[in-house]
Design a binder for these strands. Structure first.
Lengths: 146, 146
DNA sequence: GTCATTGCAAATTTTTTGCACTGCA
DNA sequence: TGCAGTGCAAAAAATTTGCAATGAC
């Protein structure tokens, strides 16, 4: 349940450069917003409004294109919490995907670090399905809503 | 991995009637399509096209309204598999939510019956989060794609 | 200077809503 | 026969695309 260790912004910049993508002010600002809000799970629209306070002229298409690019590079994870839209968060390539607790009352989304799915994955692999990734979302009520 | 036992169509009809909803031909046809495709995870559009072969004049708004109604009654579960749209399937109220395996290669979605999450849920509850439901999706490659 | 990237606006895709008409209980 | 339910068309919400102009390297 503790904070997530992610690579610094600098290494994110490096990773972009490695891939021959330009580090434009728009991309820098979007990365900055994501870093400033680690632990949140922001929608494209939320990111757009936050980035606009730095870059008032940015278009929402740029935000979408950038998020898509970052997700493709493995920098971000794009997840649906069954709300009809996507949310984005940093993705730590070294770590197994973490899981989420969604409070059905206040909507808060928090992370769980434990990975107790390995046994389940072994069962699944026994049946011939090669596991590449998984997504676990637990719905309920968070401590403060109880 | 085996087929899901659900209540017969008749008890679904009863459940609708109990709730004072009318059993219109549209609703009947949508239920029928869902029953004919158990194990599939159909999108609203797929259901629309399938129902249209029985009721050519049905509107897609009716499909959406009906699916929303059924989901509200607990007859259906509405899930997002990170594709930007929802998919619907029968929901067995007596059974714990089952989980899904999504093949990243052919897109096939199959179900797993095992519920090995109870231990994880106990861990989560220890931390003060009341678990109401959960959703587990495992991504990988199915036996025939390997 | 080049070409990837951007902003804008228009298009697409998915879902929802308003409203007059219809047909089920 | 009343009012829930429907079809249609338009609106809304989320995302994508086309294109001329721009600016990072």
């Amino acid at each position: 349940m503790e904070g997530v260790e992610i690579m610094g912004l600098q290494s994110l910049y490096d990773k972009l450069a490695e891939s021959n993508y330009k580090l434009t002010p728009q991309r820098r600002a979007i990365l900055q917003v994501l870093e400033d809000n680690q632990g949140e799970h922001l929608s494209a629209e939320q990111i757009f409004f936050m980035v606009r306070s730095r870059l008032p002229n940015i278009g929402i298409a740029t935000v979408y294109r950038t998020l898509e690019l970052f997700a493709g590079l493995g920098l971000l994870r794009k997840t649906s919490f069954d709300e009809g839209k996507f949310r984005y968060e940093f993705d730590d390539v070294d770590r197994h995907r973490h899981h989420h607790l969604v409070c059905l009352q206040c909507g808060k989304i928090v992370e769980i670090e434990e990975d107790l799915l390995q046994q389940l994955e072994r069962e699944v692999e026994k049946k011939g399905f090669q596991v590449i990734d998984h997504s676990l979302v637990i719905y309920g009520r968070c401590p403060s809503c109880k």
